Computed example of a mutant assay.
Amino acid sequence: MLSDLAEKFERASRNYADANGIERDADWFLLKLQEEIGELTQAWNRVSGRGRKKGRSDEELRLDLADEAADVLGHILLFAHRNDLDLSAAIKRKWLFRPEQR
């Protein structure tokens, strides 16, 4: 399940990078994840009243928060995929469940 999702993010990221002339070297994956965590933090600050809303409604701010959370998830999966990390096994070790089971 996670590996299938990671592969979908990988295809989308590769296509985006190719279309925009972005080199996705080893550092890029971690740096991009850090950038996205910053954007998630900024979105959270707006939702929680700690940042300027910039004329956006509460509903728009919640959508922004969800979008940024999706970006973080995608970039975690991209980082793991690039570094051949078995997240399913790590989740089983650390969280004591198997992500592919219901």
Rank of each mutant, 00 (worst) to 15 (best):
E100T: 04
L73Y: 04
L33T: 01
L85R: 08
L65T: 11
S57E: 14
G55F: 10
G74W: 12
Y16V: 10
L85K: 05
G55E: 09
R50Y: 08
L65K: 10
A66P: 02
S88L: 03
H75G: 07
N83P: 00
A17F: 10
W95V: 14
D4E: 10
D71H: 14
L78V: 11
L40K: 05
D67V: 01
D4S: 07
S88Y: 00
D27K: 01
F79C: 02
A26N: 11
D64F: 02
L61R: 15
G74D: 13
F79P: 00
W44Y: 12
L33I: 02
E36G: 11
N83F: 01
S88N: 13
H81P: 06
A19D: 13
D18I: 09
E7Q: 14
A6H: 00
G74M: 12
M1K: 02
E10G: 06
R82C: 02
Q34K: 05
N15Q: 12
N83C: 00
L31D: 10
S88R: 11
E35T: 07
L96Q: 10
N15V: 12
I76Q: 03
D27T: 01
D84R: 12
N15P: 04
P99L: 05
L63C: 13
I91D: 03
L31C: 04
A66R: 08
L87T: 01
P99G: 05
L63Y: 13
R24M: 06
D4N: 08
F97A: 00
L61W: 11
A19S: 15
R24C: 00
T41C: 02
L63H: 15
T41P: 01
D84Q: 11
D4L: 07
D64E: 14
G55K: 11
T41E: 06
L33R: 03
R46M: 12
R102M: 08
F29G: 02
D71V: 04
D18H: 14
F9C: 08
W95K: 15
G49I: 15
F9P: 06
K92Y: 05
R82K: 08
D67H: 05
R11V: 14
L65E: 10
E36S: 10
E68N: 08
A90W: 03
